[in-house]
């Protein structure tokens, strides 16, 4: 079977699978962003315990594999009486794992804001909260967006793992069609191409656009 008739026959299946992948990706990104901000700020705290909790969380999630975390959440948590649907388990694992990486990016971003900005804000009598909200946070976007973009691509690639916990995403469908028809090159090839297109022509341009926007907002980009 040539590639085009393969696409015509199995295209719809791949399309709906790609939508599942996109869904998992979007949910995980949202969760990861919240977790990164939360633990990134905790990591900067002067309180020893708060900082220790964040450090333990981050090191734990960065020290073990995503696939093991996902399997643990999906297959072991039910043994403790907490069965989670596959989508939730996958999103939790992805979001918490990449949140740990994101927290480090967020922390580095805040630390990279020049000290003069902190001092200036204090000199102008901003409250701590206002200083963070109005002065520091708006300046970190151009700093953290490039590494965040890398993480986003990694996260998109990571979504392929949810196929292993029975979620019908791109990888799952590719495997299924491979098993039914043995058109291995076509099914896995098409999956690879779809992942590539999603990363290269949708996700990355969008993040580049955000970067340009952020650079312009702080007056560093081309007008």
């Amino acid at each position: 079977m040539n590639f085009f008739s393969f696409i015509i026959e199995y295209g719809p299946k791949f399309t709906s699978a790609a939508i599942v992948t996109a869904q998992v990706f979007v949910y995980s990104v949202i969760l990861a962003v919240f977790i990164s901000i939360f633990f990134g700020i905790m990591r900067l705290s002067k309180n020893f315990f708060i900082q220790a909790i964040a450090t333990i969380y981050i090191e734990f999630y960065r020290g073990t594999s995503l696939i093991i975390q996902m399997f643990w959440i999906y297959y072991v948590l039910p043994l403790f009486g907490l069965p989670l649907p596959a989508l939730l388990a996958g999103v939790l694992a992805l979001g918490m794992n990449f949140g740990a990486y994101g927290a480090e990016v967020f922390r580095a971003g805040i630390l990279a804001v020049p000290k003069g900005q902190w001092e200036g804000a204090s000199a102008l009598n901003f409250s701590k909260r206002k200083r963070m909200q109005r002065i520091i946070i708006p300046q970190i976007y151009p700093i953290i967006l490039p590494p965040a973009a890398n993480l986003a691509v990694e996260l998109l690639k990571g979504t392929a793992l949810v196929s292993l916990i029975t979620l019908v995403d791109l990888m799952f469908v590719a495997k299924q069609i491979n098993m039914m028809t043995w058109f291995s090159a076509q099914s896995f090839g098409l999956a690879l191409i779809i992942y590539f297109v999603m990363a290269r022509f949708i996700l990355v341009p969008f993040l580049r656009w955000l970067e340009v926007l952020a650079a312009r907002k702080v007056g560093r980009g081309k007008a």
Partner: peptide, 20 residues
């Protein structure tokens, strides 16, 4: 291309396509 596609899919691709 290799950088923006998942390792898992690549593994299966090589594993199943090479024999063909």
């Amino acid at each position: 291309f290799i950088r923006s596609t998942p390792l898992l899919v690549q593994l299966f691709f090589v594993y199943f396509v090479a024999p063909q």
